[in-house]
Design a protein around this nucleic acid. Structure first.
Lengths: 132, 132
DNA sequence: ACTATATAGTTGTATAGCGAACTAATGGAG
DNA sequence: CTCCATTAGTTCGCTATACAACTATATAGT
């Protein structure tokens, strides 16, 4: 537990630096990247995909909407749902955002050794899905 | 990043349940366990040992002190420092706390397979220390 | 159709955490 | 000695997150 939370905070600091030029926090940036990759998902689908609660999704989306990087669009078949679509401003930073992410990943891989990095990611992912 | 934070939150939920009977949050419980294991450390040493910031240490210790499980004792040689010592009430729950922790660890190992569990812990620990 | 239950999203309240700015005590350089 | 830099701890303001309670919309059972 202790090692995992410490690592999470350490990574958070890395990614904070990486996304600072965009004026985005790591959680905003990761959420936006999912929206850019899969436009039109419902909020609840996004929350599930990112393994965050619905309330956290609400608040993170509020922030991104306020920055005019995405919009909530009511669906036709169910008045409760909103589908999340990027705005043109959101689309405009897609490539730069992905490049910045790629650079952090590459740097971490280099510092850790690519094999070790991949092993650890696979491990963590596995544990996470096993514990559901 | 994303997998690590998700795992951290998942583990947090597990440990929250485990320490609830003691009226402690996971961070309080882990900090208290260090104090019980190594009584007399300075706050700054505790913070370093647990890889948390000094401000977080202040607040977590405030909570435990309020529960009368530990005390801050000013050192003689430096009026700024406080050494952290368990109270008798803190010492009284030491064994039960360790037993409860052991059970969670055992259960997780069982669910995940002991080998996989140990590998992942070693991996995470390694990455954490490499990135310092 | 009408009521009861379920679902999508929001809001309120709480926790853990960090960094920056602050306070108080040390300790060195003149 | 006095003044300045350093250090231990605290406080402030912020983010991310969860759970529980709430609102509004759907849907099902009778």
């Amino acid at each position: 537990y202790f090692n995992t939370t410490a690592l999470a905070r350490l990574l958070e600091r890395e990614w904070t630096k990486a996304f600072k030029p965009f004026g985005l926090t790591p959680s905003q940036a990761f959420l936006l990247r999912v929206v850019l990759e899969k436009p039109g998902l419902l909020q609840s689908e996004l929350a599930a995909e990112m393994a965050i609660s619905r309330s956290t999704a609400t608040r993170t989306l509020d922030g991104l909407q306020h920055l005019k990087l995405l919009q909530r669009v009511a669906t036709e078949r169910d008045g409760r749902e909103s589908a999340i679509h990027p705005t043109s401003q959101g689309l405009a930073i897609k490539d730069k955002l992905n490049t910045a992410s790629g650079e952090v990943t590459r740097r971490l891989k280099k510092e850790l050794g690519a094999a070790h990095f991949d092993d650890t990611v696979a491990n963590v992912k596995g544990v996470r899905s096993t514990l559901e």
